[in-house]
Nucleic acid binder design. Structure first.
Length: 568
DNA sequence: CTGGGGAAGGGGCCC
DNA sequence: GGGGCCCCTTCCCCA
């Protein structure tokens, strides 16, 4: 064993213990395996991985910032113990944990890409580099790939907009419609959120004495890599260490949506250019200048316009969620939205302990404890907690059932009940006859059906009015994208309908078939397309699908007309 | 299957 | 621009 004497420091002897680090790691790994002293549990798709916060903070930039920020607020790193990381594949997470505790990465080659992505997400640069080496990729190539993914995503954004790509911790996690493919699109448009130029003024939940749940949504790989690059480039502000910039770190954690804050709009970039050097931004300002707003956002006019020289920020600027790419309208609404991804519920009821993601929800909840019912019915003594309860109640007084099923004409007082009804099987039998083509709107087609009914009731039956919402390609995208006929359906509904329409086009005309069957058949066909390496269709806009299927529909339509002639 | 209650999430308005 | 408050829609759960 060598004993190192420090020159000029009398009495100080440095005695190295080369095996210490390995032993330490080994003990920590044993503790992890036995669950001893584990103060953090990582979860991924149901799999749970007990671990140590300190180790994760040591190995991962993401956790370092997460926990370091907390220390910055003087909480000592306590307050939460579960971190949901569904964006990292369980096997990849397991491999990364093994690496953290053994300094050895053991993964099958097939899982290399998952590990690479996980390492990027969590900011484990050496693992990411090693994976890239093995995969023969460069960071630049990764960036290009990310850009391609972003472009691909943007091209399909219409279909996925509004769908959260992250399985959340709320009960909605079980909602099949909500659990969709993870939106890990991380184009170059996403950069690491720089530390704010000035201290953030609003109070964090922790400052209210409430413990925060961790952000479970790591920054995008590009964000992390930019951070790491910046750190390697020597900028001391590049990587925020726990002991440095505590206030900023503290805000970073409790304002963790900011970790993944979307890029500023071009106007902001101009502003930065104007200001040139914002305090505390350093190279970040350069990064922000290099930021690009997603083209889709620009095309849709959601980016702040550069009117009058383009130096003014437009208030209420929509912001794009870096996780699900959804555009969030309204200033200050993005942090609120981000909590839907992180599962953070900072607002706790002091009476019953129930937690909420939003304080306004907590406020409404508190009414249950206080007995406050601020919405009285003007017609009876009933009072209600929610305005919508009163609204529903009033419909009982009036007897109004404004929501009528177009299939069976059953009326409902609530729209969601109508929707639920229509999703059922009771009244969804369709005739596979396509409505007549042409620019007419549904009303026109209904009138056409009415005329048919007058002239030939049997013929009218072949084109029931209640099938029109499902069959009319006019409603898929508003009829050739005409501004006069805007899209009528929400993306998910459009997709389901598109799938059903596709399946419909494959069926023999005049066959009775339920909408659910059509939808399932559409899903099968989509799967077959994917298996053949074709575009599954579900990622296309309804208009594109319709174009693609136009020929098929022509054939079906001709067949239908032939059969119609035969019927006569 | 339907009616009703409640929760979650987004947008508008305002400070 | 951030956040509070409110309204609305959608969904889930239960009877």
């Amino acid at each position: 064993m060598q004993v190192a004497m420090t020159p000029g420091e009398d009495g100080l002897i440095g005695i190295p213990f080369p095996e210490h680090s390995n032993e330490l790691l080994s003990h920590l790994n044993n503790q992890r395996r036995t669950g001893l002293l584990c103060d953090l549990t990582l979860t991924s798709h149901g799999a749970r991985y007990p671990t140590h916060r300190s180790v994760m903070a040591a190995v991962s930039v993401y956790f370092r910032r997460l926990f370091g920020a907390e220390e910055g607020l003087g909480e000592g790193g306590g307050g939460f113990s579960v971190c949901q990381l569904d964006c990292v594949a369980p096997d990849a997470l397991d491999a990364l944990l093994e690496f953290a505790y053994t300094a050895t990465l053991t993964i099958p080659s097939s899982g290399m890409r998952d590990v690479l992505r996980g390492a990027q997400l969590l900011g484990i640069q050496c693992v990411a580099d090693a994976c890239r080496d093995i995969l023969g990729e460069t960071e630049e190539a990764e960036g290009e790939k990310a850009e391609e993914q972003r472009a691909q995503h943007l091209s399909t954004e219409r279909m996925v907009e509004g769908e959260s790509g992250v399985v959340k911790g709320s009960r909605r996690k079980t909602d099949k419609k909500k659990v969709k493919k993870v939106g890990l699109h991380h184009g170059n448009s996403l950069v690491l959120n720089p530390p704010p130029a000035s201290p953030i003024s609003h109070s964090s939940p922790a400052s209210d004495g409430l413990h925060s749940l961790p952000s479970t949504q790591p920054p995008s790989p590009v964000q992390e890599e930019l951070c790491l690059k910046r750190g390697r480039s020597g900028d001391p502000r590049g990587i925020r260490e726990p002991g440095r910039g505590a206030t900023l770190n503290g805000r970073l954690f409790h304002e963790h949506p900011r970790i993944a804050q979307p890029p500023p709009v071009p106007v902001l970039i101009d502003k930065l250019s104007e200001d040139d050097e914002m305090e505390g931004f350093g190279d970040d300002s350069l990064l922000m200048r290099n930021t690009v707003i997603p083209t889709s956002a620009v095309e849709r006019g959601i980016a702040a316009p550069t009117v009058g020289g383009g130096r003014k920020r437009k208030s209420q600027t929509p912001q794009q969620c870096p996780v699900c790419q959804k555009i969030i309208h309204g200033a200050g609404k993005l942090p609120r939205h981000m909590r839907t991804h992180t599962g953070e519920k900072p607002f706790q009821c002091t009476t019953c302990g129930v937690r909420f993601t939003r304080n306004d929800k907590l406020k409404i909840h508190m009414r249950k404890h206080t007995g406050e019912r601020p919405y009285p019915c003007p017609h009876c003594p009933a009072r209600f907690l929610h305005s919508y309860d009163l609204k529903n109640h009033l419909s009982l007084h009036s007897g109004a059932r404004p929501f009528e099923c177009p299939l069976c004409h059953k009326a409902f007082a609530r729209e969601d009940h109508l929707q639920r009804h229509r999703k059922g099987h009771s009244c969804l039998e369709l005739r596979t006859r396509r409505p007549r083509r042409g620019p007419e709107l549904m009303e026109d087609v209904r009138e056409d059906a009415g005329r048919r009914e007058q002239s030939n009731p049997l013929e009218a039956l072949s084109l029931p009015a209640h099938s029109l919402p499902f069959l009319s390609s006019q409603v898929l995208d508003g009829g050739n994208g005409s501004a006069a006929h805007p899209p009528l359906m929400f993306p998910s509904v459009e997709r389901e309908r598109s799938l059903a329409l596709h399946a419909l086009a494959q069926l023999r005309p005049h066959r009775l078939v339920g909408y659910p069957e059509l939808f399932l058949r559409g899903l099968e066909m989509r799967g077959a397309r994917e298996a053949k390496g074709e575009d599954p269709g579900g990622t296309q806009s309804p208009a594109a699908q319709r174009d693609q299927w136009g020929d098929e529909e022509e054939i079906i339509d001709d067949e239908a007309e032939e059969e119609e002639l035969e019927d006569h």
